[in-house]
Design a protein around this nucleic acid. Sequence first.
DNA 1: GATAGTTTCATACAACTGTTTGAATTGCAA
DNA 2: TTGCAATTCAAACAGTTGTATGAAACTATC
Lengths: 223, 223
Amino acid sequence: MASDHTRSAILAAAERLYADRGFGDVTLRDIVAEANVNLAAVNYHFGSKDELIAELFVTRSIATNRERLHELKAAEVQGGGRAPIEVILRALVGPTLRGCLGPENQRSTAARFMIRASIESVPPIRRIKNREIDHLRKFAGAMRRSLPDRSDVEIYWGLNFALAMAHHTIRESERLTKLSEGKCDLDDVEDVVARVVSVATMALTAGKVEAMAPARALARDAR
Amino acid sequence: MASDHTRSAILAAAERLYADRGFGDVTLRDIVAEANVNLAAVNYHFGSKDELIAELFVTRSIATNRERLHELKAAEVQGGGRAPIEVILRALVGPTLRGCLGPENQRSTAARFMIRASIESVPPIRRIKNREIDHLRKFAGAMRRSLPDRSDVEIYWGLNFALAMAHHTIRESERLTKLSEGKCDLDDVEDVVARVVSVATMALTAGKVEAMAPARALARDAR
DNA sequence: GATAGTTTCATACAACTGTTTGAATTGCAA
DNA sequence: TTGCAATTCAAACAGTTGTATGAAACTATC
């Protein structure tokens, strides 16, 4: 076990390079050069390139998930088992948004890495993401408790849309800035969180979709 | 020019393989094998692998964009220059959703290819996507005309969230199905379109975000 | 201070990649 | 038919990739 210095140097270098240049453009040789380490060290310490990526992603994922669940649990305890839906949604999307948005120069390497992981979906990461469902189920449960009159379908759609707005905004933050000519301020993270939470709350608490049928008919007519 | 047979055989085979297995796993040799064509034919007809991918993506993109603009224009003409916001949003997200969702076995190769293009963001495609902003600007304009009392910032956020819900639902359709244990029916495309349009409409027409401050304060207290 | 186990290192390997080459073939016009 | 351009083809090229090897260096234990 010795010093572990090599191991952590590889992890740090890999995360930095992946964050900066993406998975496709970074080779093991780039990583070991950045880490001032021998090429064979990667396979010695991690087994393979994919396992290195997986370890990076898993580490960051559990950190985010822990943060999410911590916020959720605190809210539910305070609310006697039923947290307000806004607070649940905030616990769901807040940590990720706060980590990945904000002024570019103070965005952490970890956050930039997670953005890459969300943009360039590489096999080892995809495998891990598929196991994230149990984690989401906990939020679905909390949402159901918060909105007992809503059907499961509505809960899941609300959850889906909340994640959609958060992740898409992160992924396409550059494009939104360009499109809006800077009018949408993505550095004001708490504003973004508030917007996402607000819309998701409306999606979950407004009249059921079936009540929106008029809009549907209207659109059909317009064709 | 001769027969063009080789050229279109390559395009068809490439689209099919990319749709099925993703960009990362398909080599030129796979493509020429599938197309029963010589390896050098790709570089002869397209110049490079990236240009082949770009041509595929551009073709499909203009098709979708044309469809979107056709719906939009029709609605604006009928409304005398101002289309209802629901119809605009439907024109924005409808074509993509209809192409990429629905029963798996009847999803076209083209649609499956576009899903891949949205999941695995490969360099040539990313370059093209960045030029899609002008296209989105047309929708922003229509939305502004439809909702003259809304600020630009609100319009752009609404546009962003509408695209977010549509694209994320496509990208993560498998996960949503699994998470909801099939309760969310992604094969009912028109239902999905209606949900997305309905939430986006609420986002654009409901009270301003600032009015949501209570929710924000609430969340702060809960921490 | 010898030994056993861990870690580092230079180097080679084997496979795969997109691309190029130059000759063979085809199709069409004169 | 002849000639010429467009197309196809087999083969090789040049580069890169992740991984494996076996010797060397180190570290801690007895």
